[in-house]
Design a protein around this nucleic acid. Structure first.
Lengths: 153, 153
DNA sequence: CAAAATTAGTTTCCTAGTCAACTTGATATC
DNA sequence: GATATCAAGTTGACTAGGAAACTAATTTTG
């Protein structure tokens, strides 16, 4: 606990530790997936599109907590890499839907393996029950903040 | 648990939940400090310089896990805002040191209060003992990854 | 002590986001 | 049915950071 008279320090905030560890884990994962030519955000999109019906950009934006502008550019990059395909959706000329192309579909399991490895490496410092507890706490916070996030399932 | 045959989903990774919650907490904090005209990274620098001897940019870079290039620009912005001062350090013409200017010093307690509020709001979904446990786990991970981070003390 | 290597910080180019203005298509209202 | 409004996506200006080339000052080495 800090002295009564001094302002709270960085280390006194849970948010600080969260950001510190999260950034390290994400950077580690970014380095891994870079070898497959994609970014973390691109992995999230690819996985979200895997094994489900084609999805609207706006839906992705909501799930990923990104703006529609960001998704638009992200989709551009994935299309340029031939991993994802844009289609006109339904009768509505505005709506489109994004779907995996074969190359993108094939990539998902490899990226998932990298994610598995990264998780294993990043959290090996915790005992199994600690990992479970961490997950429980994080999920609880996500729920409390209505971070509905990726159903992928 | 995912089916044996399907690749792991986003939700199956602890890193995913960590990033999700961390981003939400950081964005929330970013919105708060914006009212004081600074960014989260700037708060970290200001707090790190508060109540200690002037510090070299390279030292800050290491503590914050940022490149020296990033710190150089960050320092530029803080100097432009008159919150921080650059000095030539010691006899070595290369080294410099960064120190708070009065305005910067005065700002720290106000930003610390915002950080307190943000932490309170972000983690109110957890019981006190859960918060302590989360902090313990995060610190343990930080230590395991040699994220020595900010001593501020 | 001159030349080479090293170190601290800066700068340039690039990437990936946000925000807000814009375009275009659909819907609602009069 | 013309017009106003709304919704989906795109675009452009801007921001923050990383990587690597660069500058300048010090230190090491021959």
């Amino acid at each position: 606990m800090p002295e009564a008279s001094s302002p709270a320090g960085l280390e006194d905030h849970l948010g600080y530790w969260l950001r510190l560890v999260s950034n390290a884990v994400s950077q580690s994962f970014a380095r891994r997936v870079e070898a497959e030519g994609v970014t973390v955000a691109e992995w999230v999109v690819l996985r979200a599109l895997y094994g489900v019906e084609p999805m609207a950009p706006s839906q992705l934006a909501e799930r990923m907590g990104m703006t529609k502008g960001a998704i638009s550019k992200l989709a551009d990059r994935l299309v340029a890499k031939d991993l994802v395909e844009r289609r006109e959706a339904g009768g509505d000329g505005r709506r489109q839907s994004l779907a995996l192309r074969p190359q993108g579909h094939a990539l998902v399991p490899r990226l998932a393996a990298l994610a598995d490895q990264n998780d294993a490496g990043s959290f090996e410092g915790l005992a199994p029950e600690e990992r479970r507890e961490l997950e429980r706490l994080l999920r609880k916070l996500a729920a409390a903040h209505h971070l509905t996030a990726a159903p992928t399932a």
